[in-house]
Amino acid sequence: MQRVNMIMAESPGLITICLLGYLLSAECTVFLDHENANKILNRPKRYNSGKLEEFVQGNLERECMEEKCSFEEAREVFENTERTTEFWKQYVDGDQCESNPCLNGGSCKDDINSYECWCPFGFEGKNCELDVTCNIKNGRCEQFCKNSADNKVVCSCTEGYRLAENQKSCEPAVPFPCGRVSVSQTSKLTRAETVFPDVDYVNSTEAETILDNITQSTQSFNDFTRVVGGEDAKPGQFPWQVVLNGKVDAFCGGSIVNEKWIVTAAHCVETGVKITVVAGEHNIEETEHTEQKRNVIRIIPHHNYNAAINKYNHDIALLELDEPLVLNSYVTPICIADKEYTNIFLKFGSGYVSGWGRVFHKGRSALVLQYLRVPLVDRATCLRSTKFTIYNNMFCAGFHEGGRDSCQGDSGGPHVTEVEGTSFLTGIISWGEECAMKGKYGIYTKVSRYVNWIKEKTKLT
């Protein structure tokens, strides 16, 4: 034993070699072989497995989906700052455009905790909710729209109204504003409101030439003092309507412009014939205590009207009353817009006519005020429907199939267009061939041609 100890002390290297040989010859039971080890760690190889990531292109799944990435790591994937920024906006807080917040056709661009709407022409605001041009839906104005110097929408209202708090709607500024039905039992019968379409306001006024200088022999019209197929109006439903009495009662109609003036057809009036105007009328054979009678003290036909040349060209006249009318729910003026808007309103496509005229061709006159909704007829169809001249200051309205029309005794009465609950004068009943005849239409004086003249002559002093 002493000898062994001496050998170990003198030859430590020998001992180490012996131990190493023993270990190498022993069977290893701690580690699995290569094949079995792979069965336990069965993990798919990654895209760049075996390579240094710093030297390969980034992978979106590896960089940002398996674990949260930084902007720089995302930049490695896209290799483009702009594309990385677009991805980053949604990656950080989701897609803010998912709810489609942009209105009126706006395009949404996502941002971090926010979004941006790219608005089409005519709109602005956070969600493109603000109209900035009158060309689109009248700028959301209830009545009139004008573009300011910086191309912003400025709404306005006709006389007797003021802008509401929203700067879009119009509200009454006087007790009985024009064009409004205020009798409670008839307010439910107000005709369907007309909503502004998209309009090209630059070209809204037709490029028409008034044929002022045409000389033409007097034409022989049949029954051209021209509501057939209409309905009984309720008291106060058309408070701007008046009836004219002269040699015979209810020979023509008219509309209240203001307390002192009536507008009617020029062919209705004769110099030297006494005319009485009755406002607030409903049943011409009954006294309903809503009527107001006034005498006409002055007749002003349009300066281009000449019955000797043509009885229905420039067929418009103004009547001055001896005493002002007292405005109330049964006696209310009709609204008159400017030339541009009167023309736009007419193009809405349908209007209402009213009167006490004959209820059928050569038949009896109506006792109760009649009204009828009539569609506008395109000019080409209008011209083809008659052998008589249709001037540019006239328009056609009615039904091709016949059966409904204005008729004798309705002449001078109103053709009105309702705009968001307020009625505007767009025409004056003038003439036609018979009444409600198939293929024939009622012919009306186009008020847009005469609004400046009306307003100039009827100013209240």
Results as ranks from 00 to 15, higher is better:
R3C: 13
N5K: 14
M6P: 06
M6E: 06
M6C: 15
I7L: 10
I7F: 08
M8A: 14
M8G: 13
P12C: 14
I15T: 05
I15Q: 04
T16P: 06
C18D: 02
C18P: 03
L24G: 04
A26N: 03
F31K: 14
F31A: 08
L32F: 10
L32H: 15
H34R: 11
E35M: 09
A37H: 07
K39D: 14
K39L: 11
K39S: 11
L41F: 09
N42K: 08
R43T: 15
K45C: 04
K45Y: 05
K51W: 03
K51E: 08
F55D: 09
R62G: 04
C69W: 02
E73S: 15
E73R: 09
V77H: 15
N80D: 15
E82I: 06
T84F: 04
T84D: 10
F87S: 15
K89Q: 13
Q90M: 10
D93K: 05
G94D: 09
Q96I: 05
P101Q: 02
L103N: 08
G105N: 06
C108N: 00
C108D: 00
D111W: 05
C117W: 00
W118Y: 11
P120M: 06
G122N: 07
E124R: 04
E124H: 06
K126T: 14
K126V: 08
E129V: 02
L130Y: 10
I136A: 08
K137T: 04
K137G: 14
N138M: 04
E142Q: 12
Q143V: 01
C145M: 02
S148T: 13
S148R: 06
A149T: 09
D150K: 09
K152L: 09
S156C: 04
S156H: 10
C157L: 01
T158F: 03
E159R: 06
E159P: 06
G160K: 00
L163A: 03
Q167G: 06
C170Y: 00
E171C: 04
E171H: 07
P172Q: 07
C178W: 02
Q185Y: 12
T186G: 09
T186R: 11
T186I: 13
T186C: 04
T190S: 12
A192W: 11
T194A: 11
F196N: 14
F196H: 12
P197M: 11
D200R: 11
N203S: 09
N203I: 10
N203W: 08
S204N: 07
D212Q: 13
N213H: 08
Q219A: 12
F221M: 09
N222S: 12
G230Q: 07
E231F: 07
E231M: 09
D232W: 12
A233F: 07
K234R: 11
P235L: 09
Q237N: 08
W240F: 03
W240M: 01
Q241W: 05
Q241A: 13
V242Y: 01
V243G: 04
V243R: 11
N245Y: 12
G246L: 04
K247M: 10
V248S: 11
D249H: 10
D249S: 12
F251V: 07
F251L: 09
G254M: 00
E259C: 04
V263L: 09
T264R: 01
H267W: 02
H267Q: 06
E270H: 07
V273L: 13
K274M: 08
I275C: 03
A279V: 03
A279C: 03
G280R: 02
E281N: 06
E286T: 08
E288W: 05
T290Q: 10
R294K: 03
V296A: 05
I299H: 06
P301V: 11
N304L: 14
N306V: 07
N306E: 05
A307N: 09
A308K: 11
K311H: 06
K311E: 05
Y312A: 06
Y312R: 10
I316Y: 00
I316A: 01
L318R: 00
L321V: 06
D322G: 06
D322Y: 02
P324T: 03
L325T: 00
L325R: 00
Y330K: 06
T332Q: 04
I334Y: 01
C335I: 00
C335E: 00
I336P: 00
N343L: 04
F345C: 02
K347V: 03
F348Y: 13
G349S: 08
G349C: 02
G349E: 04
G351T: 02
V353L: 05
W356V: 08
H361L: 13
G363N: 06
S365K: 14
V368S: 06
Y371E: 06
Y371S: 10
L372W: 15
V374F: 02
P375S: 12
D378P: 14
R379K: 14
A380N: 08
C382Y: 02
S385T: 13
S385Q: 12
K387N: 13
K387L: 06
K387R: 11
F388S: 13
F388T: 14
I390L: 14
Y391P: 15
F395E: 00
A397S: 04
G398E: 06
G398R: 05
H400K: 13
C407F: 12
G409C: 12
D410L: 07
S411K: 13
G412H: 04
G413E: 02
G413T: 07
G413H: 12
P414S: 06
V419N: 06
T422S: 04
F424W: 13
T426R: 00
G427W: 01
I428G: 00
S430M: 12
G432E: 10
E433C: 08
C435Q: 03
K438R: 12
Y441P: 12
Y441Q: 02
I443Q: 03
V447G: 02
I454F: 00
T458D: 01
